[in-house]
């Protein structure tokens, strides 16, 4: 279980990285934290000619507070996000979700950009960008593109990134007046989710005034379900509302079956988790208001 031969290069700037990506295109493969890529290399399931190691590109590792936005460099370690008090305060949904990624030993190396660019449909970060309405900043030698998650995540392990482009930053808008929750069901702690739900709500007393629901593990890309969100809006998050949401979720999602769970399981559990996440988010909203 040893990787096939490759050539290795370690740029130190974004500029150098882009030139390398531009030069090698499909034959080059950027290496971020390596927690998903290196297993594939070791199993010879990925066989790039050139491995472009981004770990020395220091300028891509940062968490910037820009008041209404928090910008995170693509090479920022997941562990840094987890431990950031800024993220905890301004992006509690991200802070909560990042703890579901693997284990501390994985998050010490794994990066925000790496996880997003890998685009595993069961991963935690993609759905967080979706629900928070983040912007993904993509650079190439030709210029910079800013993509919405809906545009960035194309299919199973596929993004809108061209081979010569690099995801350099994620900009998260700060939603101060919301309650959020992230829940997932995984076979074991630290495993990829069978189903995961990210929820964000605003409440007026017992009544939900706005809701966002994002799902992971239930299709080729993370998805939001506007119908389910509308079903929550303007209503109390009681058993009847949540029951209706569960039914909508089960009806609207079109997940896959695999050796760990059937499509039926994923639909059912997504509906249940949606309700639990909404309730938790609403509780947190109230606590926040009360505080």
């Amino acid at each position: 279980m040893k990787p096939a031969p490759f050539q290795y290069t370690a740029p130190e700037t974004v500029e150098e990285s882009l030139v390398l990506l531009h030069t090698f295109r499909e034959e080059g493969k950027p290496l971020a934290g390596g927690q998903s890529l290196v297993p594939l290399l070791n199993m010879r399931l990925a066989r790039p000619s050139v491995l472009i190691d981004l770990n020395r590109v220091r300028e891509l590792s940062y968490i910037h507070d820009e008041d209404a936005t928090v910008s995170i460099g693509a090479m920022t370690r997941q562990r840094a996000v987890e431990l950031s008090s800024l993220v905890r305060e301004k992006l509690p949904l991200l802070a909560e979700a990042v703890r579901y990624i693997g284990h501390p030993q994985i998050r010490n190396r794994g990066t925000v950009g790496g996880s997003l660019a890998h685009a595993d449909p069961a991963a935690e970060l993609p759905v967080v960008t979706l629900v928070l309405g983040a912007q993904l900043v993509v650079r190439g030698l030709e210029g910079t593109r800013v993509l919405r998650p809906e545009e960035f995540f194309v299919s199973f392990l596929q993004t809108a990134l061209a081979p010569e482009e690099l995801l350099v930053e994620v900009r998260f808008p700060v939603h101060r007046t919301y309650g959020t929750a992230f829940l997932e069901v995984a076979r074991r702690h630290g495993d990829y989710a069978l189903v995961g739900v990210a929820a964000m709500v605003q409440m007026d007393g017992e009544r939900c005034t706005e809701a966002r629901l994002g799902f992971t593990g239930v299709g080729p890309v993370p998805v939001r379900l506007p119908e389910a969100e509308e079903a929550a809006t303007g209503r109390p998050l009681d058993d009847s509302t949540l029951g209706e949401i569960a039914r909508i979720v089960a009806a609207r999602l079109d997940p896959h079956s695999d050796i760990h769970a059937s499509a039926t399981y994923r639909k059912e559990v997504a509906g249940i988790l949606a309700g639990r996440a909404l309730r938790l988010a609403a509780e947190r909203f109230k606590q926040r208001e009360g505080a």
Binding site: E15, V19, H22
Partner: peptide
Amino acid sequence: ARRSKQAKVSLPPLWT
């Protein structure tokens, strides 16, 4: 060949 087209930024070396 493709590499030589590249612009101002000098390429970091490739290693085996």
